[in-house]
Design a protein around this nucleic acid. Sequence first.
RNA 1: GCUAGCGUAGCUCAACGGCAGAGCUCCGGUUUUGUAAACCGGAGGUUGUGGGUUCGAAUCCCACCGCUAGCUCCA
Length: 726
Amino acid sequence: MVQVQLPDGSVHEHPEGTTPYDIALKIGARLAQACIAASVDGQIADLRRPLPTGSLLKLKLITERDPEALGVMRHSAAHVMARAVMRVFPNVGLAFGPTLPNGFYYDFDMPDRIREEDFPRIEQEMAAIIAAGETFDRFELPREEAIGMCSDLNQALKVEHLKTGLADHPTLSFYRQGEFVDLCRGPHIPDASKIKAFKLMSVAASHFKGDTSGRSLQRLYGTAFFSQKDLDAYLAQVEEARRRDHRVLGKQHGLFHISNDVGQGLCLWLPKGAAVRGILEEFIKAELIRRGYQPVYTPQIGRVEMYETSGHFPYYRDAQFSPIFGHPAGSVVDRWITLLESGEMTPEKEKQFIEFSPMLEAKIENYPVGGTVAEKIESLRGWQSHHERYLLRPMNCPHHVQIYKSQQRSYRDLPVRLAEFGTVYRHEQSGELNGMLRVRGLTQDDAHLFCTPEQVENEFQQTLELVQFVLKSLGLDDYRVQLSLRDPKSNKYVGSEENWQRAEAALRKVLVEMQLPFEPREGEAAFYGPKADFMVRDCIGREWQLGTVQLDYNLPERFQLEYIGADNRAHRPVMIHRAPFGSMERFVGVLIEHFAAAFPLWLAPEQIRILPISEKVNDYAATVEQQLKAAGFRVTTDLRSAKINGKIRDAQIELIPYMLVVGAKEAEQGLVTVRDRLDADHQRTVPLAEAIAALTAEVKERRIRQTAKPGGSTLSGGEDAVANEY
RNA sequence: GCUAGCGUAGCUCAACGGCAGAGCUCCGGUUUUGUAAACCGGAGGUUGUGGGUUCGAAUCCCACCGCUAGCUCCA
């Protein structure tokens, strides 16, 4: 007997072997037809799989309208795609084919290369499979038989997965659709006709289970929807995102430039981009001072030993620029020590080092040729201690720690909040670089708070409030918080178990108290502490990781930080690292995309452009410009001999928020005609003073007028003023 | 770093084995303008770099540099 409870609370009994489809059919034929899958006790299951007997099951029928349906259908679409690829190409090995937030992919191990030119052929085959409307049939096999079948099918990666990842599964489920059989957990849609609209998106390389040492696979991306309309809306959104690409807009509007002559991933801020950044920096600086922070400046390099103490140097060695040596032999000695430490030093190599080093004027005195490895290293370290190694700093914290340590601290002084727009350098892998969003030199809006253990929660809360305030000021008020915790099974973290538990508990407590929704994510913490990251949704629904607040009990330990408590004894402070923007590069990059380069008045590099009708009113235009400048505006005057139409067009294309048109009429009476970039149909001719007052108010309020409503996941083409811009 | 695709004027692109071109930008001139492009002229290139194949290479081949997408990484 199968006992089910439907969402309306009603309980029904059915004979054994009843499927959710049978139940749907009893309710109504149209419902049964609309069903995609079923939710059984909260688990998504196949519509035609018999329900288990015994306890009462909570059953919910999933139709296209339920959010879970899309994922089920896309997973089936991935199978259809794989089936099509196997029809088009020979010897296709299957890896994994999961669902993504916006579609799905399937990884293939195959001799042929899939090119975009092949997409139509594959899509055609998929369309044929969908038109045939065959069912997805689940069956189970015991382990050995499953392995046998996969090897019969020449699916080596499936066999490997069965033997490794699924080693503890006694029985395995498969899905068959026509000639296509795939090891798969499911669930699937009942038959292929549920896939109403699909499209192949792109193809790129990937690796089996993410292992870069293994063979490269081809990953084919696609997406699918329940209607052509939804697919079209999605494609429009992709197009909109492409149109907002900060690399394109940054070039077009002269915001930033990356020159190969300077170097990969090194951002040059052009005057207009620098203006935006400068305004943001001023904005946040004023806010920090209001909140009791103290600005500091520290150098952009520091001794390697300091980063060895902090743990950054050993932990992130591959992602850092090589140390800078004060002596030409520095890197040779460094290599020498590395070989000794790793045990790779041979007598021949050692002889070469000893003979070579004098040519670099390195006098390694008393090198114990016949001594132990430890003695040799000690001797070389002795040389190093007289010849400093510097690191282009990858993090600001050690420098700020040194400021903290520069004087004795009393509990009365805490919290100490040190803030700096600190530029750091990281040797990111070349394939990671992406415009301003991923660079090798970046400036963090960084600060480090040193406080007593009792102050931690309060300070943490205040930093979260600061991040909230900053994001809100920029119209980025749709966000969620990720609480990144350590992976208890990994040993890559520094610090004691107790410290980690305290830190994680403190973060959790504050987030709960602030009623900030958060998702815990194990294994995502920094190596020195847990963190709360702000995932911010922009106006076209994309998510970006921006602000971050990190709690750290470990660096104070490593640097032996102290303060004198009320009990006249030394205590260890706690550190909080935080950056509301993250980095200026990344944040401005995101803002460019968020605003589509049409910055609100308070951020616009050029806020106002004065457009004289003819040269006859140039003098008046100059007066207007002077007064606007005196009122603090970033303003220019278009003195070209072009017609007013041309001047307006250029200002409009350059996304200048306001144009002030001045002609003989305005000059006579001290007026300006205000042309709002977003509302050219309602121009007003007003006294200059009135215009200045209105514009000043808009800046003061940091008014944001041009973005579409945040949170919209679909881009309604045309409704957003920004979207209409070009 | 890996796999694939791509590098032509400041920008966007054309020429795809046979004389490197257009529009915009820029410069000079004419024009003095009332709400999204006035007109005329000019300049701008060792086709990413270096090799090779060829009578001849932007075009074909190789290496390097860079960009893009994805993978891996992200203090």
